[in-house]
Nucleic acid binder design. Structure first.
Length: 418
DNA sequence: AGCAACCTAGCCCCTGGCGA
DNA sequence: TCGCCAGGGGCTAGGTTGCT
């Protein structure tokens, strides 16, 4: 049974297929009171691959070691230097006023070798004040400060739409169709997380579907949130610019009404998967490469995660938000789909993962280093493994040492179950 | 029923809290 | 102060689920 949308009708022009009157078998919704105030990119996280410049890193280390309140000046801007642990990086440089957070030195790559060593996160204000190309150029500029052979290596994007004139019904979470298992509803009193299928009583104020490291859908009362995050002046100045045919040239923003935000968060892994799985789409490693597809991403996400009025009938509000909202460019006619990365060459992480697993098995079977070494050579992993370590300037002697140490470590740590 | 999308396991490497 | 351990993010393969 196919998923269906209500038929649309525009009362002012008489056109079908658009407009705010939604009709299906015996039912009608009038969404004329719904006003989209703003839509756009809320956050960009741009990853960069490269080799860390030792002298720049040294400056950061020096600053960091000064402890709490450490600062560093880069290109005449002051940056607070903190631990970037939470984001998977060693250092975090932040200038809230300017609007960027830069994470430096990934934990999962050797600091002195090629790796994803810089991640830059933008604030909504920073983004709002710049065009797409300028965003990319400036992000690249900052990344180059830290990296040699600097290349964008992935991008995460949050798309958002702010609107008034509708609010989620009590049973919103139950009527929401999604594959995401982790669903949370925050109602201002208690934070609930549960597996899909359970029921939650009371009106929700924040709904989150999916995990942060995947595709995440979030619906919340932005007009409440801006007071918590101290962004009222900024957001209202944007909403004030919204208008429509009825109230033109005045704003259609109503201060008395709540503003709901629908936000779709694409982790860089998801963007990679969509680029891989969608025919006719090039690889997307940078924000600017993603820009032509933002509307396409949005529609893809709103098809997979949607509100229904009843089984297989998309709620008119969802149809409207999905089809009317545009991000910079109209959607290209592509069949957006996701695909996993093929295993095999080019997956460096894979090699170290396989190596670690293999060592665990050898250790479990009481291999001595010599036996492990010989078996490793015949394991089928050998060529990839030697390539992997050659790239890191590790000699065969050192590799043998790694095998030996790895076996010992696994024994001592009791990872070798009886 | 097929398959896309999500979840989990298991590795790595790190940090920070906690108890000794 | 030190060492241990839990926890968390990144990564991938492989299993599972539930949409289509």
């Amino acid at each position: 049974m196919a998923v269906r949308d209500f038929e649309r009708f525009d009362v002012t022009t008489g056109e079908t297929g658009k407009g705010d009157l939604f009709i299906s078998e015996g039912k009608q919704y009038n969404l004329q009171g719904v006003n989209v105030l703003w839509s756009g990119v809320d956050t960009v996280r741009q990853l960069y691959q490269g080799r860390l410049r030792p002298e720049v890193l040294a400056d950061i280390v020096t600053a960091y070691e000064q402890g709490h309140g450490a600062m560093i000046s880069i290109n005449n801007l002051d940056w607070a230097v903190m631990s970037g642990r939470r984001g998977g990086f060693r250092y975090l440089l932040q200038n809230r006023e300017y609007g960027l957070t830069m994470l430096v030195q990934n934990f999962y790559a050797e600091p002195d070798s090629l790796g994803t060593h810089v991640k830059i996160e933008t604030s909504p204000t920073w983004l709002y004040e710049r065009g797409s190309q300028q965003v990319q150029d400036e992000l690249n500029f900052w990344a180059r400060h830290f990296l040699q052979a600097c290349e964008p290596s992935g991008v995460a994007i949050h798309l958002a739409v702010d609107f008034q004139g509708w609010q989620p019904p009590q049973d919103f979470a139950q009527r929401f169709v999604t594959r995401a298992k982790t669903v949370s509803v925050y109602n201002g009193v208690s934070d609930l997380e549960w597996e899909t299928g359970s029921t939650v009583n009371g009106r929700g104020e924040t709904f989150t579907f999916g995990k942060a490291n995947s595709l995440q859908t979030c619906l919340y009362d932005k007009s409440k949130e801006i007071d918590v995050s101290d962004k009222r002046a900024f957001m209202e100045s944007i909403w004030e610019t919204a208008t429509n045919e009825q109230c033109f040239p005045d704003t259609c923003y109503d201060q008395e009404q709540p503003v709901w935000r629908l936000e779709i968060r694409f982790h860089h892994r998801i963007i990679n998967e969509i680029a891989d799985g969608t025919e006719g789409m090039p690889v997307i490693k940078s924000f600017i490469e993603a820009v032509p597809h933002l509307t396409g991403f949005w529609r893809y996400a709103l098809r997979a995660n949607r509100l229904e009025v009843r089984k297989n009938w998309v709620h008119p509000i969802w149809t409207k938000l999905r089809d009317d909202v545009v991000f910079t460019h109209p959607a290209p006619q592509l069949l957006y789909k996701r695909a996993k990365k093929e295993p095999g060459c080019g997956n460096e992480k894979n090699v170290s993962l396989a190596f670690g697993n293999l060592l665990s098995i050898y250790a479990r079977n009481r291999f001595n280093p010599r036996q492990a070494w010989d078996c490793l050579k015949k394991s089928g992993l050998w060529d990839d493994l030697t390539n992997y370590y050659r790239n890191r300037d590790i000699t065969e002697n050192e590799l043998f040492q790694l095998v030996q140490d790895g076996l010992i470590k696994r024994r001592l740590l009791g990872k070798v179950c009886a």
